[in-house]
């Protein structure tokens, strides 16, 4: 393992001196090409963490390094070219009047010449499978399509890290599956680092590693199988629920976490 692409050390943050810390002493790292899931319920400090990572909020204590660069006021704009954030509400992050305008927004900010922009927009749209929709306006797109456009807007900037802050919450199941498929493809083909902040365990189970946040603290981390095995409080993915029920009914199932694939394969034996 080389130097981590993202390094978070002893991060603490509070919105108001009179209230408790929203985040306290949070440390973790992410490697290039890794898919990191950050899970926790509403109020666990997940979204605050996302805002700190992209410099929308400044930490009270601790520091963040991205690509070896410290996130601070001086190089915040440099950092932002390396890291992109997809927000929860698909409507509020569509800036352009058409799909391609929206993807180009970040490039316009770099004062990039038209020919280069066009090439980048074409590439980004094809990566998320939205090329056919380039002239559409947002009112003709589904929530999932809008989120994919938002991702394209970030990909056009060639970032190293893609953060999703509850980007699935407002989507219907079909849109969710489409978005998830897009992300898997990106990770595989583009070796992009994905940090997915979520309270949906069926989404988190696709991560390489999971961090569990609770009341602003990291209470557990590890592979999905380790985390779901140890954290009995988290609502596990469906296959694991079934495995536990079988275990309760004294059926002879393996005692550790199983994904759906593993469970089905085991049943076939």
């Amino acid at each position: 393992m080389g130097t981590p692409i993202l390094q978070v050390e002893n991060l603490s943050f509070q919105y108001d001196k009179r209230t408790a810390h929203t985040l306290s002493n949070v440390s973790f790292t992410a490697q290039q090409g890794e898919w990191l899931g950050i899970v926790g319920n509403n109020g666990s400090g997940k979204s605050t963490l996302a805002k700190l990572l992209v410099g929308l909020l400044q930490p009270e204590e601790g520091q963040i390094h991205i690509n070896g660069m410290k996130v601070n006021q001086e190089n915040i704009w440099k950092v932002r070219s390396k890291i992109g954030l997809v927000f929860q509400n698909p409507d509020n992050q569509f800036i352009g009047t058409t799909v391609e305008d929206d993807v180009a927004f970040g490039l316009e900010n770099l004062n990039m010449p038209y020919e280069d922009m066009k090439a980048r927009v074409d590439e980004a749209l094809s990566l998320v499978g939205m090329t056919d929709f380039r002239y559409y306006d947002p009112s003709n797109l589904s929530g999932g399509q809008k989120q994919r456009v938002a991702i394209a807007g970030i990909l056009a900037l060639k970032p190293s890290i893609l953060i999703l802050d509850e980007a699935f919450v407002m989507l219907d199941p079909k849109s969710r599956r489409e978005l998830l498929a897009t992300l898997k493809k990106l990770k595989q083909d583009e070796n992009i680092t994905i940090i997915s902040i979520t309270h949906d365990m069926n989404e988190a189970v696709d991560a390489d590693r999971i961090i569990v946040l609770k009341a602003g603290k990291i209470v557990n981390s590890g592979t999905p199988s380790e985390v779901f095995h140890e954290e009995q409080e988290l609502e596990p993915p469906f296959a694991e629920q079934l495995r536990r029920l079988l275990q309760e009914r004294n059926a002879k199932v393996p005692p550790e976490f199983m994904t759906e694939q593993e469970l089905v394969r085991w049943l076939c034996k």
Partner: peptide, 16 residues
């Protein structure tokens, strides 16, 4: 969203 995607006021921007 605009800030994260690199928008600052007073910036010289190109036009897509």
């Amino acid at each position: 969203v605009m800030e994260v995607r690199g928008y600052q006021s007073g910036l010289t921007r190109s036009n897509f």
